[in-house]
Design a protein around this nucleic acid. Sequence first.
DNA 1: GCAAAAATAGAATGTTTATTCTAGAATGAC
DNA 2: GTCATTCTAGAATAAACATTCTATTTTTGC
Lengths: 204, 204
Amino acid sequence: MPPDSAPPDPPRAEVRRAQILAAAGDCFRSKGFHGASIAQISRIAGMSPGHIYHYFENKEAIIAAIVAQDLEHVLAMTASLRVACNMKEAMVEHVADGVARNLEPRTAGLNLEILAEAARNPHVAEIVRSADRVCRDSLGRTLRDMRRASGHDDDEATIAGMIEVLAAMFEGLASRSIRNPHLDRDVVVRLFQGALRDLLSQNP
Amino acid sequence: MPPDSAPPDPPRAEVRRAQILAAAGDCFRSKGFHGASIAQISRIAGMSPGHIYHYFENKEAIIAAIVAQDLEHVLAMTASLRVACNMKEAMVEHVADGVARNLEPRTAGLNLEILAEAARNPHVAEIVRSADRVCRDSLGRTLRDMRRASGHDDDEATIAGMIEVLAAMFEGLASRSIRNPHLDRDVVVRLFQGALRDLLSQNP
DNA sequence: GCAAAAATAGAATGTTTATTCTAGAATGAC
DNA sequence: GTCATTCTAGAATAAACATTCTATTTTTGC
């Protein structure tokens, strides 16, 4: 449950809202944002089509809510990772998790759907970008501390660049899982660990 | 009547077909595969909606053609790259082009659209996968030669893994260009070059 | 020039869509 | 229990959509 800042709503409404979001998640994953219809979502959510409009202004609002919900998960994960990973080797150990998560077909599909929608829907783009900003800030602090601790003195641009490279690598796995579903995950993990080590200990 | 099963030879037909594909490309880029309508495509292509069905059986066939066309460009690029890049440093030099190309918003948007569609449309998935197979084979040969020339003896799995890492890095840039449109391209190029050098010269 | 064939437009079709409207059922306050 | 409020269903609406049909124009082979 996201710790919503919204005023205390009747619990009934919250349950209903959650049902809609769950159903919409399923439909969006399998049909895409524009391939899934309100009728379909309402059937899976166990309510009438019209009733959905008591909780969401329109279909775009449902899309936005799904995107926000999904990114909040990522945000929470990033935050917890920051606490656990003050050291380089700890990060390297987490690579296996990160690779597995990003290769998961269901995750990959919805992520790509979100990005494609963000590429043409400014509202969704803003949600995606603001979540990314938070992730980058958090990862940036971790990275700067780590590099300082090992004697390097990087400028901001280099830190930001490292984050982009890291992010591109992991986010690129979604693309890889679609294009080459039979890729050898273990080898990828091994090489990712090597690349990460090199990236984090390189001289400027 | 369904369209002629054999594409007509006359150049007239080819021009018309190309017009449709060009218009469809524009529409798909700005609205997505399912957001773009035949009416819209036909308007931009300068013909009637019904006429499109003389060249394509249905909308999915247009999507498939666009996907195939796009991937053929990538394929051609990969092939030319293989000729030019027998050496590591030559590849490193091409990083800047590769980064710029993958960060291009128009390219990135359509690529993400294609991947999202491939995640749920088996027909499109097959096109994408077969193109990727060709790219991997070509890059694999290049990489193996390069590594042998510098005294390394890798097994197939390692070569395949290197390709996956490389591909993930570059393909991940599409995601980055959406999530963080203001990223510093030059720094990313510099760090990509370093990462590429490390990846290609690491010991097994 | 002239028929046969191909190319094309544009209206017609039938379905699907998001969204709104209307009215009935559940719930809770007192 | 009664009444006001909130939920909820399902029909109604109006637009959009992919696709097909029909008729007209253009091209081509001769």
